[in-house]
């Protein structure tokens, strides 16, 4: 099975990075680092819900939980487990 964190990383690069030379890692701060604004977070949430057939409750979809690829992966794993 595809690693969740690689799926998330690929989506974030495709969705949010405007500059092709920009590089991010699993631990790059996305929201607090200004890469993803809180508005744009919604597409990531909807993507994950569709991809993994889950529902992420609003209270769990916090800017903190969505701040790095690793934290997003942890959230998805918690909900799917």
């Amino acid at each position: 099975m595809e690693e969740i964190r690689d799926v998330v990383l690929e989506y974030v690069i495709e969705e949010y990075l405007e500059d092709e030379d920009e590089e991010i890692s699993y631990e790059t701060p996305l929201i607090s680092g200004g890469i993803v604004d809180s508005f744009s977070m919604v597409s990531l949430k909807r993507f994950l819900e569709a991809k993994y057939k889950i529902s992420i409750p609003d209270e769990k979809a916090s800017p903190e939980a969505f701040d790095t690829v690793n934290s997003i992966t942890a959230l998805v794993k918690e909900i799917t487990s």
Binding site: E18, F39, S40, V42, S43, R46, F47, A50
Partner: peptide, 21 residues
């Protein structure tokens, strides 16, 4: 209402968003 964005003037990205929602 829910809010999402598409890359500036990027029509294929807009189409993906219309499909997503």
């Amino acid at each position: 209402a829910m809010h999402d964005t598409f890359k500036h003037s990027n029509m294929s990205h807009l189409e993906k968003k219309l499909q997503l929602h």
